[in-house]
């Protein structure tokens, strides 16, 4: 933990008076070295975003395809990505779990439909090219089902774990007025549609089909918005990682994720999830060959969750930090 990184400029807080009985730590004027809400992150030099979902939705909007005012024109794969929710993580057996800190977490929820995807997007632009880091504390669940109980249940492994499909983090970056534009996408594939556990991190090998490409007749499928064909995913070397589902559909354990990509080099740098650090510098990142207008300096971040079966899948995020080195 590099504590020098926690010298955060918080002008409003710096000038606020503290009660006399509260010991004020020694610090340079205008700097707070030990904000406990940030001490669990490892940000780069400048924090652009600190999203604590006890404070609200923080700009994580529903992803939607391009349209010209007529929502009938929305592409099927991107017409129903669901609005994010502020969840207090309530479950039917024990009530409110709460988030990692506080009460609320950002929640993405699919429909109870195979391959349905819920996606939220945070839309920024960048000042300078270079390393960008996204960090979050997350957890994931499949909705409780009430099917006939499995007589072979061993009291440890829950069949519910087989009902969680995939979650993906991705970006959308356009370097200038005419591009280049590229998209990095990293997916945790938990289980196949048959319920077989995979538990591996993947990267995509083809481009997300844009609305412009769709209108040129280039759409091949409508069940995975990230790729041209559904099998255009490869395993990240060393990317096998069973996460902590914790035996039931109602116990949530928070995981740390840190993803770095470099807009100057137009590639991923690394992905850390708890103790697993994956070097991604050698992984190819597809780039669009054609220009896109009105995307100058685009810097978008996306989170999504995709159901492998007809069971709602949930992705919860307690908090997130986006930082850069400019």
């Amino acid at each position: 933990m590099n504590r020098r990184r926690f010298g955060l400029m918080i002008p409003a807080a710096a000038g606020a008076p503290l009660p006399a009985q509260v010991a004020r730590p020694q610090r340079a004027a205008g700097r707070i070295p030990d904000d406990p809400r940030l001490a669990r992150f490892n940000p780069l030099k400048r924090i652009l975003v600190f999203d604590d979902f006890d404070e609200g939705i923080n700009g994580w909007a529903e992803l939607v395809s391009n349209h010209n005012g007529n929502l009938d024109d929305l592409r099927p794969v991107l017409r129903d990505m669901r609005p994010a929710q502020l969840s207090n993580c309530t479950f039917f057996d024990t009530g409110t779990h709460g988030s990692m800190s506080g009460t609320y977490a950002l929640k993405l929820a699919t429909r109870a439909r195979q391959f349905h995807t819920a996606a939220s997007i945070k839309r920024l632009t960048f000042q300078k090219p270079g390393p960008v880091q996204f960090e979050m504390y997350f957890t994931f669940k499949a909705e409780q089902t009430f099917d006939a109980p499995d007589p072979n249940w061993d009291g440890n492994f829950t069949p519910s774990e087989r009902n969680f499909g995939e979650m993906t983090i991705s970006n959308d970056v356009c370097m200038g007025e005419d591009g280049p534009r590229f998209i990095c996408a990293l997916r945790y594939r938990n289980a196949t549609p048959e319920g077989e556990l995979v538990q591996k991190w993947m990267y995509k090998t083809s481009l997300h089909t844009t609305t412009k490409m769709d209108r040129a007749g280039q759409t091949l499928q409508s069940v995975d918005y990230h790729v041209r064909e559904v099998n255009d995913w490869k395993e990240i070397p060393g990317g096998r990682q069973p996460l902590c589902f914790n035996e039931t559909s109602t116990k949530i354990n928070w995981h740390y994720l840190r993803w770095v990509f470099d807009t100057a080099k137009q590639r991923n740098t690394e992905l850390q999830v708890n103790d697993l650090v994956m070097d991604l510098r050698g992984i190819p990142v597809p780039s669009y060959g054609q220009g896109y207008r009105s995307l100058n300096h685009l810097l978008n971040f996306l989170l999504d969750v995709r159901a492998n079966r007809a069971v709602r899948n949930f992705l919860f995020v307690d908090s997130a930090v986006i930082s850069v080195d400019w």
């Binding site: 929502l71 929710q85 969840s87 207090n88």
Partner: peptide, 25 residues
């Protein structure tokens, strides 16, 4: 405050329910 769009230009010919939405806050 927050506005959730739970159905968008959706066509139905029979009964349905909107997706569950959390409103504790």
């Amino acid at each position: 405050s927050f506005t959730a769009v739970l159905e968008k230009n959706s066509t139905f010919t029979e009964a349905f329910q909107t997706e569950p939405y959390e409103t504790a806050w």
